[in-house]
């Protein structure tokens, strides 16, 4: 079990990303970074300031950026390409498919501003289907870190692993839940709470909410198992099946559509031996403008909602 706790400490995942990139830049001359006129928002600009020759701002031309990243990768570069999740995936799906995933190139697409917590910008900028789009591509690995510490562990790990990756992060500050760095294990789930009554599988910053949900359930004598799933693809199917067997019901949580993301991946993994599974996410609708906090509440992405779903999943299992 990995130690994780809810603290008052908040950090922006993008700060973790830019720190990790700079560290990586010092260690490996082959690391290059591309952005599409959002370098201040994604915070890749910090890398560009330290390593100006290895930083390429491609302007508002994401399709070209993905191609340039692919070309750099054919020549031995490890190319990190960043922009908002909505542009990084939907806008250039075909470039990613044809020029990155099919030739299996070393392009690491690290997207920020994923999810509904983007807030005020509204539906046009709230990417809720990026994991679905990236997950269906052969060779593509899909990651969603829980906090800034995990981002700092993940970035060097994906740089050291050949082939394409998609990493999604939100815009908002998020609670730091890990107290120390660890070796990031691709494709492995992270067990955070050992309970046997119900399993909560969460990805990205929803994992902090899952930990809060654990605390909401505990006074009622419900011990939830909390599994953090930083790798949505390849999914740790063994951990899912083990949880299904041992707890008999699951809840998934993600700041993403319930179609095609973590919940879908978990459902696929336990299809042969199904148990009740409730998926928390955005229910096949576009988002809207509002404050991050209010939107998360309105769309049911809170600890309270997770706890309620956990209780419902247990009732389904027990037939009560």
């Amino acid at each position: 079990m990995i130690k994780a706790a809810l603290t008052d400490k908040m950090r922006n995942l993008r700060d973790g990303y830019s720190s990790a990139l700079i560290e990586l830049g010092y260690q490996n001359d082959n690391v290059v970074v591309l952005d599409a006129d959002l370098a201040l928002s994604t915070k890749t600009k910090r890398f560009g300031t330290v390593f100006p020759k290895r930083f390429f701002d491609c302007g508002i031309a994401e399709a070209n950026m993905m191609g340039v990243a692919a070309g750099l990768a054919t020549c031995g570069k490890i190319a990190f390409a960043s922009t908002f999740a909505v542009f990084a995936t939907g806008r250039c799906y075909d470039q990613i498919r044809q020029s990155i995933a099919y030739p299996e190139l070393d392009v690491k697409i690290v997207a920020t501003h994923a999810g509904i917590s983007v807030g005020g910008d509204g539906a046009s900028h709230q990417m809720l289907e990026d994991m679905a789009l990236m997950r269906v591509l052969p060779h593509m690995r899909v990651l969603a870190p829980a906090d800034a510490i995990e981002v700092e562990d993940m970035i060097p790990a994906i740089a050291a692993t050949a082939g394409p990756f998609y990493v999604r992060m939100g815009r908002a500050d998020a609670p730091v839940i890990f107290d120390k760095h660890r070796d990031f294990q691709l494709g492995k789930s992270v067990l955070l709470r050992r309970g046997k009554d119900v399993t909560i599988v969460a990805t990205g910053t929803m994992t902090a909410e899952a930990l809060r949900a654990y605390e909401l359930l505990e006074p009622d004598g419900i011990k939830a198992r909390v599994v953090h799933m930083p790798t949505v693809k390849p999914l740790d199917g063994a951990a899912v099946r083990k949880a299904a067997t041992e707890t008999g019901c699951l809840v998934t949580c993600e700041e993403h559509s319930v179609i095609g993301g973590l919940g879908a991946a978990v459902a696929e993994a336990m299809g042969e031996r199904p148990v009740p599974l409730l998926r928390i996410g955005i229910n096949d609708v576009f988002g809207e403008s509002g404050s991050a906090r209010e939107l998360m509440e309105k769309y049911g992405l809170t600890a309270a909602a997770i706890a309620e779903h956990a209780r419902r999943a247990m009732k389904l299992r027990d037939g009560t």
């Binding site: 191609g67 340039v68 070309g71 750099l72 054919t74 075909d94 099919y102």
Partner: peptide, 25 residues
């Protein structure tokens, strides 16, 4: 074959990446 292609319009971008890598190295 230096690059996989087939979906039109993508090759020039990739060539730019190759060009930049050459200059960097």
């Amino acid at each position: 074959v230096d690059m996989s292609t087939g979906s039109l319009g993508q090759g020039l971008s990739v060539a730019i990446g190759m060009s930049l890598a050459g200059k960097l190295d």
